[in-house]
């Protein structure tokens, strides 16, 4: 049973910010509700005030900004809209693929990209891809707006850099300069309606010096992390079995998995290597 609360649905960002500032710890932002309402159903959260951000202009819009060559995703864009978007599928296929691995179809009609970000779970399926894609997040408060890299925004499990009185309004993804291949592999106990035991995001972007790899790993550290050493190994050598082995080993050394109800630390360590190798091989296969 959900505790009762007062509900607001402003149409202006400044009104959202004022409410957040005024009620601080006693107010929660409602986007898709797939994390918030579950926590409220279970009694883990019982705020006296709820502010629904879906009344804000363009908050659920996908727009490619030609002038700045960035993709702008409104914070309340649903994961199904992202997965089905032609422009996302073309230039950011990794994100479309990852969005589709979350929960179930009906859940993804409600779950939002901004919600997935602000819930800040280390296992969130869109976050390793956003880190690999070097996405930025726009935050707006009463004093104005600021931009931060998603990688810096995430601090720990459920923790991020949002200040009291601020909301995330938009995610921005730079357009890859060349052709891009990407894979997100979600290792989970079930095929659907499960959280990632391990998530592996790999992209390869075509440039003057051949393909450049970026690798990010989810559910194996307090936040999704970039595997820089693995990237370096992949980018500085002629690709062969031995190099992929070295990159996978390096990724294993960069992570800090824990044991929880989904898997043990050792299992995560093994599976991240297995799935990273598969993701790299799939990316290589897809450009050959």
């Amino acid at each position: 049973m959900i505790n009762n609360f007062e509900y607001f649905k402003p149409s202006q960002v400044k009104d959202v910010a004022s409410l957040l500032k005024a009620y601080a710890d006693n107010i929660k932002v409602l986007a898709g509700g797939t994390d918030l309402l579950v926590a409220m159903q279970e009694g883990d959260l019982a705020p006296d005030y709820i502010v629904d951000i879906k009344g804000l202009t363009d908050i659920d819009r996908i727009k490619y900004d030609k002038e700045n060559q960035i993709l702008r995703l409104g914070a309340a864009t649903s994961l199904n809209d992202i997965a089905a978007s032609k422009v996302v599928q073309k230039h950011w296929p990794l994100l479309a693929e990852a969005a589709q691995t979350v929960g179930s179809y009906q859940l993804r009609n409600r779950a939002t990209i901004g919600g997935n970000l602000c819930n800040s779970s280390p296992a969130a399926d869109t976050l390793a891809p956003l880190v690999a894609l070097e996405a930025e997040v726009e935050m707006v408060g009463l004093e104005g707006s600021r931009i931060m890299k998603v990688k810096d925004f995430l601090v720990g499990p459920g923790q991020n850099r949002l200040s009291t009185g601020e909301i995330v309004t938009e995610l921005r993804l730079p357009k890859p300069s060349g052709a891009v291949k990407g894979r997100y592999i979600k290792h989970s106990r079930r095929k659907a309606v499960d959280l990632a035991t391990v998530g592996v995001a790999v992209i390869a972007e075509e440039g003057d010096l051949g393909y450049r790899f970026k690798v990010a790993l989810g559910a194996v550290a307090p936040t999704p992390i970039r595997a820089y050493q693995a990237e370096k190994i992949l980018n500085e050598s002629e690709l062969n079995e031995d190099i992929i082995d070295k990159a996978v080993q390096a990724a294993g050394e960069a992570i800090f998995p824990i044991t929880d109800l989904r898997a043990s630390k050792d299992y995560r360590l093994k599976m991240v290597k297995v799935q990273l190798r598969r993701a790299i091989e799939k990316v290589i296969d897809s450009w050959e």
């Binding site: 797939t34 309402l37 159903q41 009906q106 009609n109 409600r110």
Partner: peptide, 9 residues
């Protein structure tokens, strides 16, 4: 669009 009505106010 289909949704879980238990997670919609």
């Amino acid at each position: 669009k289909v949704v879980n009505a238990c997670l919609v106010l």
